[in-house]
Design a binder for these strands. Structure first.
Lengths: 106, 106
DNA sequence: TATATTTGCAACCAGATGGTTTCACAAAAT
DNA sequence: ATTTTGTGAAACCATCTGGTTGCAAATATA
């Protein structure tokens, strides 16, 4: 069973859950109210998100509050970094070409 | 059949293919040499990557060169932006707390 | 022209995935 | 003490996924 952050964010429902709990912790029931699927389906998603450390739980009586572990999101940012370098380089090259054309016009 | 960029990068083999062709275009055969699976399996991955515009083809005789459409990667960056804002805010808040402690020490 | 190379596509298959229903259990409310 | 509420886990199911083998088409080479 693969269980990394990239597989976690592949599902649109899970991305929606992430967006929901990004700003404030929520209980499974409260989260599920925002979707058409059952609470159990949402619970399964939360399990997957918890397993890959994207989400943390906080018990409060019989309620469990789920919140986003924002630090984990940096992993995606880190992976993206190598490609950001590439597109910035390409942009600079294009910029160079454009300024050369501008100069020639003068 | 879902076919978005998040599903595309969910598979580790596809992420490896993306990394391979990020800097230079490659043929399916050349790409497949880097993996244990068959050329056809790689071909399937290339099809998925092409379908969601992450990769573009360039025919050259009977060979087809695949290269990364780096622009498409920005979509992930854009999605990440909302969370980057959050973690930067949290960092600044932490920074504030730390500087307050520093002042108190003085 | 005959053969080799490069490729995509269809058919098939085992296992993963996302959903459901059902159940068990602990905490809160009656 | 009994009922209600909030939750996770198990069993099941249809569909998706990633892999394979086999084949056909197009281009290059003999």
């Amino acid at each position: 069973m693969r269980r990394d952050i990239f597989q976690a964010i592949a599902d649109p429902t899970r991305r929606a859950i992430i967006a929901l709990i990004a700003l404030q912790a929520m209980t499974p029931n409260a989260i599920a109210e925002n979707f058409n699927s059952t609470r159990q389906a949402v619970s399964k998603h939360l399990r997957i998100l918890t397993e890959c450390k994207l989400v943390k739980q906080q018990q409060q009586g019989r309620e469990i509050y789920y919140s986003l572990q924002i630090e984990k999101m940096k992993e995606i940012d880190k992976w993206l970094e190598q490609y950001r370098k590439i597109w910035e380089t390409r942009f600079n090259q294009l910029d160079k070409v454009l300024s050369t054309i501008k100069k020639q016009k003068k």
